[in-house]
């Protein structure tokens, strides 16, 4: 198995998302970048596959704020190799990001045991689904919303679980090489102590790959970015916590719930 986990850094939605003066983008000053939850699950799933089947796990990302921390953390977790593509991801839309990854794989080469594992979806882009775009560009099979992978036929195929809805899931078989968009790993992402990450920072190296700029940074331009008008349907209960608890109990009683 030759697994590649693709990381895309996106603004952390837990932080205040402020609109920039141009009214078309986020105010960069307040953004804190982090890798998406699905990307973290993708690292975990790749490591689980390696523990079971052997092989190699490489983590690949475009340049973005905080990306080095994410790559070193992946190395500390047990990833074999970390690669940073020297293109500014924050300036690229999903199509251009996928193009950059496609160029990387054209340079790197794809073998019969290559498994490309992006997180299934990021929440920061109007196009999204970078993994699906990459698969199309590389003419590889693609399955998204994956929450389980078992390698079969000596690593030539994978049996993949895709989530549907209402707890229903589908089982698929796919020939490698393939792109699988990871939603969640079979186990929660492992924890790695900060001391171990610091140690890795001293010994391990992030490889840098230079690629030419994609033809077009963005396919579609955002005309206007804004905060949704708060419909404010919720009636906000005021008071201290005890008063709020009493009010809620009263509401439940009025509705006949208790």
């Amino acid at each position: 198995m030759n697994a590649y986990v693709l990381i895309k850094m996106a603004p952390d939605p837990v932080e205040e998302l402020d609109i920039a003066n141009d009214g078309k983008s986020l105010n960069a000053e307040f953004i804190r970048f982090k890798s998406g939850d699905p990307d973290e699950h993708s690292i975990e799933q790749a490591l689980l596959l390696k523990e079971k089947n052997g092989g190699k796990v490489t983590v690949v990302a475009l340049d973005a704020p905080e990306v080095d921390d994410v790559l070193y953390t992946a190395l500390a977790k047990g990833v074999d190799r970390a690669v940073k593509i020297s293109l500014d991801q924050t300036q690229l839309g999903s199509v251009a990001t996928a193009q950059a990854f496609a160029s990387f794989f054209q340079k790197e080469g794809i073998s019969s045991d290559t498994l490309i594992m992006p997180g299934t979806q990021a929440i920061d882009d109007i196009e999204g689904e970078t993994g699906a775009l990459l698969a199309e560009m590389l003419a590889l099979p693609y399955i998204g919303v994956v929450s389980g992978i078992t390698l079969t036929n000596g690593g030539a195929k994978a049996v993949v679980v895709k989530e549907f809805s209402s707890g229903l899931r589908g089982e698929y078989e796919v020939e490698l090489p393939a792109v699988l968009g990871i939603q969640s790993a079979e186990k929660p992402p492992r924890y790695v102590p900060v001391a171990k990450i610091r140690a890795v920072m001293k010994t391990a190296k992030i490889e840098t790959v230079d690629l030419s700029e994609p033809d077009k940074a963005k396919i579609l331009e955002i005309e206007r970015m804004y905060k949704p008008e708060v419909a404010g349907r919720a009636q906000i209960l005021e008071g201290d916590v005890k008063e709020i608890a009493a009010k809620l109990a009263e509401i439940f009683a009025e509705r006949g719930i208790i």
Binding site: S94, V95, T120, Q121, D125, I126, E127, G128, E129, G131, A132, L133, A135, E136, M137, Y142, I143, G144, V145, K162, E163, F164, S165, G181, I219, L220
Partner: peptide, 20 residues
Amino acid sequence: NISFGIGTRLALRSGMPFIN
């Protein structure tokens, strides 16, 4: 989930833009 990834790939094949 069930239609996930169809829009983007169709966009590349048809030359139409995709908005998610």
